[in-house]
């Protein structure tokens, strides 16, 4: 284990309702890299992310970000979280939303125009979020998280519903942020997005199947794309289980 990890999760148990969604998982997330959290729908990606940003009630286990326990007051300006469903004020314009979050974070007004540019919403800046498309709304939500230049960015499926051009743009932005030293954790259920990540966490039914770089994973499974690699990992998991189980 490298002590330099930006995020470290140890023996995390999370129960939601009756279901044990995360059954004692451990993982580490590297500083200054883009880590993809990939796995099928309902697997526990959002739950893990919520635990990492400290909004999820957890049963047991430890989550540490930048050396502090998840959810500490000191982390609130250093860690930004974008929820899976856009969480912005739908009755306000893009700019009004950003102005509010900029004031909370105490960042200068110029940042607003910058982040609007980053998410390519320049033409829609003065439209109410209600009148935007789903993908545009998601970008407003993402823009608010970029405002404060956070050290850690946790993004829950930020590229869902976006066209390929915009998606490529955003992945470039993410890579740029990582190059400047930010740590990004980005979830997706689209395996193909793995190619944009420096590191991967493959998740299935609450368990971490693999934690490696994309190349390593392809090499180890002897496959050519992530979808295949993922299936191979599941098969391997099955065959290593007791035959009668």
């Amino acid at each position: 284990m490298c002590s330099d990890a930006a995020i470290s999760v140890r023996d995390l148990n999370v129960r939601r309702g009756e279901k044990l969604v995360l059954p004692g998982i451990s993982l580490e997330i590297e500083r200054g890299a883009v880590t993809g959290l990939l796995g099928p729908s309902g697997t526990g990606k959002t739950t893990l992310i919520r635990a990492i940003v400290g909004v999820q009630i957890v049963e047991s286990g430890a989550v540490t970000i930048l050396g502090e326990p998840a959810g500490s007051a000191g982390l609130r300006a250093r860690v930004a979280y974008v929820t899976q469903a856009p969480s912005v004020y739908r009755d306000l314009t893009v700019r009004e939303n950003l102005r509010y979050f900029a004031r909370i974070l105490d960042v200068p007004g110029e940042r607003i125009a910058e982040v609007i540019e980053t998410v390519s919403l320049g033409e829609d800046a003065d439209r109410e979020v209600d009148n935007l498309s789903g993908g545009q709304g998601a970008r407003v939500s993402l823009a608010t998280a970029l405002l404060g230049r956070p050290e850690v960015l946790v993004l829950d499926e930020p590229t869902v519903g976006l066209d390929p051009v915009l998606r490529a743009d955003l992945w470039r932005t993410f890579a740029g942020l990582a190059a400047e030293g930010a740590t990004l954790l980005i979830s997706s259920h689209v395996m193909d997005e793995a190619v944009h990540c420096d590191r991967l966490l493959l998740m299935r039914e609450g368990d971490i199947l693999a934690a490696s770089s994309p190349d390593e994973l392809l090499r180890r499974t002897g496959t050519r794309d992530m979808g295949e690699a993922f299936l191979k990992l599941i098969e391997e998991g099955r065959s290593s289980e007791a035959p009668g189980a």
Partner: peptide, 10 residues
């Protein structure tokens, strides 16, 4: 979800 977001902010 705006409340959840606000609760993660300072």
């Amino acid at each position: 979800g705006t409340l959840e977001r606000l609760m993660t902010l300072p």
